[in-house]
Design a protein around this nucleic acid. Structure first.
Lengths: 232, 232
DNA sequence: ACCTGAACACCGTTCAAGT
DNA sequence: ACCTGAACACCGTTCAAGT
């Protein structure tokens, strides 16, 4: 999974004067396995080694030569999606805008593979790349003047909302459709005029993000009013 | 799973003059199965029919006479935890306080069984009781003057944050400990002075809840300033 | 009505044997 | 080094047979 993880170049393979006996072409690659696994999950919502192997034109046991089992595949996919999120861009002087843009990218990346999300919820984020991203976010908070003892809490809160919102895109919105019972008049009225489907999840994320950042701005302003010395 | 789902009373069982041949005492009950399943998940983080049966002193196939398989057990547990959340109390005239108190109860109920959460993330909430609770929340928003077309979005946003925060209590906070690499100085500094463990998840939830509600208050105030006719 | 053991199809993983 | 088929232990679920 490191960045040097590519196919060996042809020159490398036959650098001897006598070319080696022609070997069967490499069937599997970490990349090809992960590609197939992700599209399998996207399409079926499940990941079984047998189905994955057949999609690769190979056998289940072959996969173990490249990745350490089913769980490792899921972790690699999680890291891959995480790595596809553009790291927070600190060029904008407004930390709130930085954070909101990053949250949107983060959430969109996972929302593109909604059926993967339930599979990764049981494990925490360990990828090196992800850690570096968090470092960038903390740096933005530090620059904004957030109390150092609170920075982990801010990130956790933001993370929780983003992950919950990503999960929301996975679950169908039957929730709001099932209703229509006489016992729930208020809910029925809200459902009748509300958005549904993917648009609902999108709009809810946008609304929540804006509210969360607004609230964090207010908190920061209050802290700095209490302790003006913290300002630079 | 309805409220009449109890053991038949002894009178009912032997209301005939001639008492029926003494039957073997009822081994399993929906309640006893769910109790055992929940404690099994709490302790091991897993739910297999075999392990569940052995804990009940019974066999896996027996369980199918009371509940419709493994998935049904998980759904029943989700509904049970959901039903244990006190419905939002609308006696407080401040809708924000109502919502915050409900969010805290909601999150605490699931945080009490952190290892259950990953098992329920793939399914949406369908329990009748849960629907009624949402109706109460919508009613509070309606009374507060929230635009009817936005009410579902508010609830979704709140729900996403609560569920994400509940998940946060399940994942250990290794995330923040692994670091300590020279590439992440800002994160290292934040970890050094930050809270860790359960206290971190608790504090992050409290901080996020406060920020979210503050932001929603600001949004409502802005909306009502734009359209004063919406006020009663 | 409730319980049981045997059976079934499927699952992730291991490993000796091939090239 | 990479691939394979056979085998293993385990899984959720079904069902005929018991009481």
């Amino acid at each position: 999974m490191s960045r040097g993880d590519f196919l060996p170049s042809p020159e490398q393979q036959s650098r001897d004067a006598t070319p080696p006996r022609r070997r069967r072409r490499r069937l599997l690659t970490v990349e090809s396995i992960l590609d197939a696994a992700l599209s399998l999950i996207d399409e079926t919502g499940e990941l079984t080694m047998a189905a994955l192997a057949s999609r690769l034109g190979s056998t289940a046991s072959s996969i173990y030569h490249h990745l350490d089992g089913r769980q490792a595949i899921i972790e690699a996919l999680r890291d891959r999606i995480g790595a596809s999120v553009p790291p927070p861009d600190d060029s904008d002087p407004d930390w709130g805008h930085c954070l909101m843009r990053w949250m949107r990218h983060y959430r969109d990346a996972f929302a593109r593979h909604p059926r993967l999300i339930p599979l990764i919820t049981s494990q925490s984020v360990t990828g090196d790349l992800t850690i570096v991203v968090y470092d960038r976010v903390v740096a933005i908070l530090e620059r904004a003047g957030v109390d150092r003892r609170e920075q982990l809490l801010w990130i956790s809160a933001v993370d929780n909302f983003v992950l919950g919102s990503a999960l929301d895109t996975a679950a169908p919105d039957d929730v709001w459709r099932i209703s229509h019972q006489p016992e729930t008049p208020a809910l029925n009225a809200a459902v009748a005029v509300g958005i549904t489907g993917t648009a609902r999840a999108d709009a809810a994320f946008a609304l929540g993000t804006e509210a969360l950042i607004t609230g964090l701005r207010a908190r920061l302003a209050r802290e700095q009013a209490d302790d003006p010395g913290a300002l630079r």
